[in-house]
């Protein structure tokens, strides 16, 4: 009973720390001075680190979708709807989720490691001792950059995925080019794009928040950095999938 109580208290304390960290960061976002130079640097960091992997995974996701959905839709005699099926799957679901998971693995892990190393080499203490708020310098630029970059990367993922699907559907499976694109235009609504946008915006907050938190609270040397990085990637990925379900059921 005592162990259960201690575990519960510790879990509540950890949860409190995570949310206090986010609240502190959000407060700092809206209170000057703003660090635009650092923001641009972090936008480049997320974009630069993740672009190649987004292009690769986006195109192959679209191609796989085309193969699988063509096989399924043909059974129902609806293979003309392949274009919208691919586009809707990507825009509403796979684009935001898969791109967020890819960015977590690529840039999120690097972010946790970088902040973690700053913690163990006392660079964060140095900022604090200079009477400068480390949250403003290290956390805020990352959260704002992620909120800007995640929807853009998801949009690139969607677009390249739709063209990947086009390559397989039109060039390989012999579908007409006009059917593929005109049906997308007919079936994809602004609401679908909005859902994808909301999802990737919230994933941006989740990934940057968790990765920064884990890096900021790194302890005990190189092993601590490794542990923090693993935890950040695992927790971010799990939260992306859980939050995707909840936001999906609300916005459906």
């Amino acid at each position: 009973m005592r162990i259960l109580g201690a575990w519960t208290l510790s879990a509540v304390r950890r949860l409190g720390n995570i949310f206090t960290f986010l609240a502190n960061a959000v407060y700092s976002i809206f209170s000057p001075p703003f660090k635009f130079g650092l923001l641009l640097r972090q936008i480049r960091f997320f974009g630069n680190k993740s672009m190649v992997i987004i292009l690769l995974t986006g195109s192959f996701t679209g191609m796989v979708l085309a193969l699988q959905l063509f096989y399924t839709l043909r059974k129902f005699g609806s293979d003309a709807l392949l274009g919208p099926a691919i586009a809707l799957s990507l825009i509403r679901e796979l684009g935001p989720v898969l791109s967020a998971l890819m960015v977590t693995g690529r840039a999120g892990s690097a972010l946790t490691a970088e902040i973690g190393i700053m913690r163990i080499s006392e660079q964060i203490d140095a900022l604090t001792a200079m009477a400068l708020n480390p949250v403003r310098y290290l956390i805020v630029p990352n959260i704002v950059a992620a909120v800007i970059v995640f929807p853009l990367l998801a949009a690139i993922f969607d677009l390249i995925g739709i063209y990947g699907g086009y390559a397989v559907a039109v060039k390989l499976l012999g579908m007409s080019e006009g059917t593929y694109f005109s049906q997308i235009e007919t079936f994809v609504e602004m609401k679908d794009i909005r859902i994808g946008l909301y999802k990737s915006l919230s994933f941006g907050v989740i990934v940057s928040w968790i990765c920064c938190y884990k890096g900021f609270n790194t302890r005990y040397g190189a092993e601590g950095v490794s542990k923090a990085t693993t935890e950040a990637v695992v927790l971010s990925s799990i939260l992306i999938l859980i939050w995707d379900y909840f936001i999906g059921s609300v916005l459906l």
Binding site: I117, M118, S121, E122, Q123, D125, A126, A129, M130, A131
Partner: peptide, 30 residues
Amino acid sequence: REKFGVVFQGGALFDSLTVYENVAFPLKEK
């Protein structure tokens, strides 16, 4: 803390900044 200067073990210099930028940093920011 405005009264303080701290020399940390190992220096705790900011890796992404040059020596010049590191030295200029507190003055530039504060």
